[in-house]
Design a protein around this nucleic acid. Structure first.
Lengths: 210, 210
DNA sequence: GTCATAACGCAACTGTAGTTGCATTTGCCT
DNA sequence: AGGCAAATGCAACTACAGTTGCGTTATGAC
């Protein structure tokens, strides 16, 4: 059998199709930013983009597909962490960036929408997995630089250090839903930097040996 | 003005009303456990409980209200952490409990539903906030016992220690959506126990001083 | 430029979530 | 026991998410 084109937009990626793709993506981001994930609708995105409702359903399948597309667009966009010359301040900058990404409009709604939609759609969950994995990989430079400076052992698990630093921020923002203070960010960076220096992110973890 | 009864079930809490409340709560838990948050419907809960659809809408407002009720029911139920005699193993038991609560049926779906619904409903978000706050308070015994044994300074922020231990687990389960291994749990407990012993959860955090 | 057809626009349709007015049942107070 | 009103059951209704068949437009290959 020859190659199939299950979804429209695959066989003729140019011209009107490309314009529609861009218009719908932009409309999705705008609607998410203004009204949030709870209020966004295929109809509203269709109206805003000027693309017909049936076309949006055929190409993206529904709200989940729209969020997935927005998420994959974010994954493709370039991002890299700031490097200040010290592991602690690098991690502090990183958690500050994460925090503002979930507290300042309009980025806040887009980020929250991705996490929320992942609960309802395995498709979005997969996209989110890829997105987070990509961010881990890119942020790992912070740790490899720190290793090069001698701030952490050579066999430190770099991505695990990143996870350790940002996890408390995500926890407060999205799970326990408490306010995130500057002290919280400093503590997250501090604990992680100290643990990395102590070699906790190497080998197999176990009970602390004093 | 005299006292009002905005929601049905407030003025006559006994008899049929009480039976309906119990039936709907049970049906909600069952539906969540079997079909999950993405599939649960007011109609399905109404049919399963034998309570009429319109009544469920009037008393609970919708799926959000049902999840909120299930969450508040969990908050009222008694829970206390295991105490093994060492901070590290206590924290390890704790994160193991959290993990199984999000990975083993049917509890898994109920827990995930609470977090997911909090994104779409401020009412559920508030209930989740109270639930997590309650769990932090109850789990804090782990730390106060450790302080009594001299494993951590007297002015250690007990609830902050709890948050630090469980945050990486929640992060992997619900945000980055990666598998959680036994090593991950050991590392989370290990880092937190070491940081607590080092006095990181006292006073104002800052850059690590070696 | 010509042409086959992929992609789209349109409109009408289906299914279901959520609402409302009204009759009926049933707590709860006296 | 008796009665008032709260709570529920019922059915019809509205609103909107999502689907489908078909005619139209425009892309990409020749």
């Amino acid at each position: 059998m020859t190659s199939q084109h299950p979804t429209p937009g695959d066989a003729r990626p140019g011209g009107r199709t490309a314009r529609n793709t861009a218009a719908v993506l932009q409309a999705t981001l705008d609607e998410l930013g203004e009204r949030g994930y709870g209020a966004i609708t295929v109809d509203s995105v269709a109206a805003r983009s000027g693309v017909h409702k049936a076309t949006v359903y055929r190409r993206w399948g529904g709200v989940d597909g729209l969020v997935r597309a927005a998420l994959e667009h974010s994954t493709e966009r370039h991002w890299e962490p700031e490097l200040t010359g010290s592991l602690y301040t690098d991690l502090l900058r990183l958690v500050e960036t994460v925090t503002s990404g979930f507290t300042e409009a309009p980025e806040r709604e887009v980020s929250a929408a991705a996490v929320a939609a992942a609960f309802e759609s395995e498709e979005v969950a997969e996209a989110l997995r890829r997105f987070m994995s990509d961010r881990h990989r890119r942020a790992a430079v912070i740790v490899t630089e720190a290793i090069a400076r001698g701030e952490a052992p050579r066999d430190t698990d770099a991505e695990e250090v990143i996870r350790s630093a940002i996890a408390p921020v995500y926890y407060r923002l999205l799970i326990s839903r408490e306010p995130v203070t500057a002290d919280d960010l400093r503590r997250a960076a501090s604990i992680t930097a100290a643990a990395a220096a102590a070699g906790t992110f190497t080998g197999t973890p176990g009970p602390p040996t004093p």
